[in-house]
Design a protein around this nucleic acid. Structure first.
Lengths: 206, 206
DNA sequence: CCTTTTTTGTATCGATCAATACATAATTGA
DNA sequence: TCAATTATGTATTGATCGATACAAAAAAGG
């Protein structure tokens, strides 16, 4: 509540959104302070006063992404009637989400991930935690499916969650490589088409 | 054939291998000239005389990767008796390959990929071409399966190739996030378990 | 020997990086 | 009106980036 002092003449929200978009496009390392101040429309001192540092700004941007553009993907996870439908919907929403701009963007959390060595440790840890958190959420949804009977007892929910997130992560790479929405949808359908047999094999392993 | 002049006192091959390993670990951007000269054991002028630039060195390093550490993954693709076995073997070899070091490395070509905007264009284009080339090779192998009868007529080989590479790319992210070899193997097995049903659905779509 | 050629090590280049110092402008509370 | 507070714009910081200038060193050709 800074009621005193000169008021800032930019919207913190809008500036953060602009930062998110360029971080999403170019990644953490390839986005310079000059890039940020340009798209955010403010000078370095204002940026640092409002967000602390480039890394903190990035973390806020990722959080914004998770609450806005990245949120829709996981919307149906818990409300889907069965685990199978939840997964199929998750992948179809991913396909849609990753290709909803002129330039396909994929998932910010996944694409910012690789090559952690040498990068900002706090940033890498945060991104990794977000990926693992989503995978855990998916695993819990699968376990609910076992409890509710739409998945057989003994299903390896951890392995299947890893399998599904693997597909989803790969879709981000494909989106960046220019894959069409149709292709990404086909990938989602491939997973769905093999689902029953896969689940069956998983539960019969033990 | 530089028969004249002072001979270099380092092995170009060994230096390139060292460069490949640190590029693999840290990526193109996060690997500095100082890093490279340190692990390669030579001074900047020697590096530039031998390799031209950081980008050219990286391209040579990626090529070396494709001919050595990354080659084994695709070894059985053409000699496998059926497309199904070829894919399953590909994914299992990937799982093995991505976790064969103390620190899991994943695939150099995939992990160096993301956030092309802002990076070196030549490097990004080369990596993208390598990914698409492998996907095309996989697609051709599937088409051979159709021709040889172990896949049904009308199978969408392009979609399935995208599906399989999506899984494989995602496995690299998982490897970086600390997934065990066992988990990656389970992912490969998930794909194999659902294979027949998936292929069947694909061929019945048309 | 001496010239030519190539590599070596040192020392550094200009550019760009993330981050700030500083003075000024704009607002509130007294 | 005036002190306190906060944000702004300009200009710049030290560090690091990728890449070189330069001269000494080490080989071959003559």
């Amino acid at each position: 509540m800074p009621s005193r002092g000169r008021p800032r003449n930019f919207s913190r929200e809008e500036a953060l959104k602009s930062a998110m978009e360029i971080f999403w496009d170019k990644g953490f390392d390839n986005t310079s302070l000059a890039d940020l101040t340009r798209v955010m429309g403010l000078n370095p001192p204002s940026l640092y006063a409002a967000f602390g540092s480039k890394a903190k700004l990035f973390l806020e941007a990722v959080d914004l992404y998770g609450r806005t553009d990245g949120a829709g993907i996981w919307e149906f996870l818990d409300s889907a009637p069965t685990a199978k439908e939840a997964v199929h919907d998750l992948l179809r929403r991913s396909a849609e989400n990753f290709t909803q701009w002129p330039e396909p963007r994929g998932c910010m959390v996944v694409l910012s991930a690789p090559q952690m060595e040498g990068g900002d440790a706090a940033v890498c840890d945060d991104l990794k935690a977000r990926r693992l958190q989503k995978q855990a959420a998916l695993q819990h949804r699968l376990e609910r499916g076992v409890a509710e009977g739409d998945l057989p007892q003994g299903t390896a929910c951890d392995d299947i969650a890893a399998y599904v997130t693997s597909i989803q992560h790969g879709m981000s790479i494909h989106a960046r490589d220019g894959a069409s929405r149709q292709t990404l949808m086909a990938i989602a359908d491939c997973c769905a088409a093999g689902w029953d047999a896969m689940v069956d094999a998983s539960s019969r392993k033990i």
